[in-house]
Design a protein around this nucleic acid. Sequence first.
DNA 1: CTTGATCTACGAAGATATTCGTAATTTGGC
DNA 2: GCCAAATTACGAATATCTTCGTAGATCAAG
Lengths: 130, 130
Amino acid sequence: MAHEKTRPRPTHAETAILQVLWERGPSTVREVHEVLSAQRAIGYTTVLKLLQIMHEKGLVRRDESQRSHRYQAVSSQRRTQQQLVSELLERAFGGSMRSLVMHALSSRKASPEDLAEIRGLLDELEGRRS
Amino acid sequence: MAHEKTRPRPTHAETAILQVLWERGPSTVREVHEVLSAQRAIGYTTVLKLLQIMHEKGLVRRDESQRSHRYQAVSSQRRTQQQLVSELLERAFGGSMRSLVMHALSSRKASPEDLAEIRGLLDELEGRRS
DNA sequence: CTTGATCTACGAAGATATTCGTAATTTGGC
DNA sequence: GCCAAATTACGAATATCTTCGTAGATCAAG
């Protein structure tokens, strides 16, 4: 089995860690802990344990060549986000993509650049040429 | 406290039930169970228990005037969806609304009506008059 | 080599979520 | 009134998630 088909959906705490790994790239437990503990109280060994569990689950890869192991996310941010959006779509929006997008757009102030890019994608989806 | 400020975020199983209540309106345990068990194996008393817990949490209201109690969602679908989107935004998208919208748009085929409505909202957000 | 700092491994406690069996209650039909 | 079917209440088992303490290994400094 060259390709893992079904990687488990990351939990809340796990997603927070993935967030850090995506931003920083391959990181040690200490580095991840420093970022997270700036956001909320969390023990060092808690982060360590979470990363170990994520490693078992196949959510992260581990480089053990150094004393301080380096962890990196297996799935790209893009792919994971896609998975989470799809899931939310089914779970709470009954598959209504429009509804989700409308909510997202309304939920936060968007920059002109954001809007322009979204508009561009809309154009594509509508099959507009030129 | 006339208004409950913080209603707990619904869990996975709970969201599935809310989904049914939003679609059907006030429903009995049996009715909810019929819908859910068509999707996956789940016992009648499991649904009952979940609805009882949701009632304790304040997620649903219960009409006990009939022998078969009727449950209905307390928060509107709209409001709950808003909450879940915001959470996902923080949790996995680092607050990048654009990213979320782009993913959502790409994840599913959208009807011309969907696209038109989204475009309309874009126009509003861009402050276009006319 | 010894010591203190740092790191991993591991177990386990506590919290939360999910599941369902059993018992007690109610009700409609006979 | 009695029974079968349907319903609620309740407790408990199981699973999953989150947390962290402790022990042991490793390493750098002196």
